[in-house]
Amino acid sequence: MIDRWTGRLGRQMTRRSRALVLGLLLLAAPAVGKLAEQQAITPVALPELDGPKLELGRMLFMDTRLSGPQTMACSSCHMLDHAGADGVARPVGASGRRHDFNTPSVFNAVLNPYLNWRGDRRDLEYQSEMVLLNPDLMGGNWPVILSRLQADANYPRGFQAAYGQKPQREVILDALVQFQRSLITPDAPFDRYLKGDAKAIDETAKQGFALFRDYGCIACHQGRNVGGNLFQRFGVFPPAEPSLQDDQPAALGRYLLTGREEDRHLFRVPSLRNVAETAPYFHDGREPLLENAVGVMARRQLGRELSSREVARIVAFLRTLTGTYQGKALVSSIPAAPGQVPPP
Score class of each variant (00 low, 15 high):
S17D: 15
L26C: 03
A28G: 14
A31K: 06
V32I: 11
Q39G: 05
A40G: 08
P43N: 09
G51C: 02
K53C: 00
E55A: 14
M62Y: 03
T64Y: 06
Q70T: 13
A73T: 01
S76C: 03
M79Q: 13
G87Y: 06
R90I: 00
V92I: 15
R97V: 13
N102K: 14
T103S: 12
V106P: 00
V106K: 01
F107G: 01
A109P: 00
Y114N: 11
R121L: 10
D123A: 06
D123T: 10
L124W: 03
M130P: 03
L132W: 05
L132N: 05
N134P: 02
M138S: 00
M138I: 00
L146A: 06
L149E: 01
Q150M: 09
P156F: 04
R157I: 09
F159R: 01
A161Q: 13
A162K: 05
A162I: 04
G164R: 08
R169T: 12
E170H: 12
L176S: 01
Q180R: 12
Q180L: 05
T185S: 12
T185C: 10
D187N: 15
A188R: 01
F190P: 09
R192T: 12
Y193Q: 10
Y193N: 08
K195I: 02
G196L: 11
D197G: 07
A200T: 12
I201S: 08
T204E: 12
A205N: 07
A210F: 03
G216Q: 07
C217I: 09
Q222F: 08
G223A: 07
R224W: 01
F231Q: 07
R233S: 11
E241H: 13
P242Q: 08
L244E: 13
Q245I: 12
D247K: 14
Q248L: 15
R254H: 04
L256D: 05
L257Q: 10
E261W: 02
E262F: 01
F267I: 06
S271K: 02
E277V: 01
A279P: 00
Y281V: 09
F282T: 13
F282R: 10
H283D: 01
D284A: 14
G285F: 08
P288N: 10
V294P: 07
V296K: 12
A298C: 03
R299T: 10
L302F: 14
E305W: 05
L306V: 00
S307T: 15
S308L: 13
F317K: 07
R319Q: 13
L321K: 03
G327V: 02
A329E: 13
V331I: 14
V331P: 03
S333I: 08
V341W: 04
